[in-house]
Computed example of a mutant assay.
Amino acid sequence: MDNELIFRQAQSCETDRIMQIIRQAQARMHAAGSRQWQDGYPAPGHISADIGRNRGYVLCKPGVEGPLSVIAYGAVVFDGEPAYDAIDGQWLTDEPYVLVHRIAVADGERGRGVAAEFLHRVETLAQERGVKAFRIDTNFDNQTMLRLLERTGFTYCGKVVYRSGERLAYEKRI
């Protein structure tokens, strides 16, 4: 992956671009037959809340004429996920963990390892904070995400439930 990529916290002025990337991901999931993100989630309010809580992160690359271009987004959470407390299965660890929600990559950047690089940068951030576990979940029919999790070394641990339904839960020791 390109060393020029910059991983940083998202800024509120980037919400429109982030939502454009989210809408692209929603359209791809719909076209692939996935039911994930087909109910208006995530909405601009989710992204604004992420940014306001210092959870929104972007991966950027230099633009052709200078400014950085946001190519991926995700919510990086270090203070837990309540749904994970009631897993139908077993986590690999009982340690503090980092998790990612709402990860999405811009259409023009797909197939270039951007999502894997985003997850790698989250791992590095977690390691810098002394966190040794990484958790994530996805819908059973999100084949792109399921392949990414397998390629990046995550282990299936069970199922978690949100208001919107059941999700497959994964963890990786880092």
Rank of each mutant, 00 (worst) to 15 (best):
159 K>F: 04
95 E>A: 14
126 A>N: 05
86 A>S: 10
153 G>F: 01
98 V>F: 01
149 L>T: 08
121 R>N: 03
157 C>G: 01
114 V>L: 02
156 Y>Q: 14
118 F>C: 05
159 K>I: 10
120 H>V: 04
86 A>W: 10
154 F>L: 10
122 V>Q: 05
155 T>V: 12
83 A>H: 09
111 G>W: 01
146 L>I: 11
79 D>Q: 14
103 I>S: 03
141 D>T: 12
96 P>T: 09
142 N>L: 04
128 E>W: 13
155 T>G: 07
114 V>G: 05
145 M>P: 13
88 D>C: 04
76 V>W: 01
142 N>Q: 06
144 T>Y: 00
147 R>K: 14
85 D>K: 12
124 T>R: 15
79 D>G: 07
133 A>Y: 03
157 C>H: 03
101 H>Y: 00
154 F>M: 11
149 L>K: 09
96 P>W: 00
79 D>W: 05
118 F>N: 02
95 E>N: 08
131 V>C: 10
147 R>P: 06
113 G>N: 14
134 F>M: 10
100 V>Y: 00
89 G>W: 13
86 A>G: 04
150 E>K: 15
93 T>C: 06
109 E>M: 13
100 V>N: 03
152 T>C: 03
84 Y>K: 09
141 D>C: 06
101 H>I: 03
125 L>G: 01
114 V>N: 00
77 V>I: 14
76 V>H: 04
110 R>Y: 01
118 F>W: 00
132 K>F: 01
159 K>Q: 15
113 G>A: 06
121 R>M: 10
90 Q>S: 10
157 C>N: 06
134 F>P: 08
76 V>A: 01
136 I>L: 07
146 L>H: 04
85 D>P: 04
104 A>E: 07
137 D>L: 05
154 F>R: 12
152 T>Y: 00
143 Q>N: 11
104 A>T: 15
141 D>W: 01
86 A>E: 14
119 L>D: 13
127 Q>F: 09
77 V>P: 05
152 T>G: 02
157 C>L: 05
152 T>M: 04
151 R>C: 10
142 N>G: 08
96 P>M: 08
158 G>F: 08
133 A>L: 08
152 T>R: 04
103 I>N: 04
111 G>T: 14
104 A>I: 11
88 D>V: 00
112 R>K: 15
143 Q>T: 07
117 E>F: 11
108 G>Q: 13
159 K>H: 15
90 Q>P: 04
80 G>L: 04
152 T>Q: 08
134 F>K: 07
96 P>V: 09
142 N>P: 11
100 V>L: 05
151 R>L: 11
145 M>C: 12
79 D>K: 10
87 I>Q: 15
130 G>N: 08
84 Y>G: 03
81 E>N: 12
90 Q>N: 12
149 L>R: 06
97 Y>N: 07
76 V>T: 08
150 E>A: 11
137 D>W: 01
121 R>Y: 10
133 A>D: 09
143 Q>S: 14
80 G>P: 05
146 L>D: 09
94 D>N: 15
134 F>G: 05
154 F>E: 12
151 R>I: 13
113 G>F: 02
87 I>T: 07
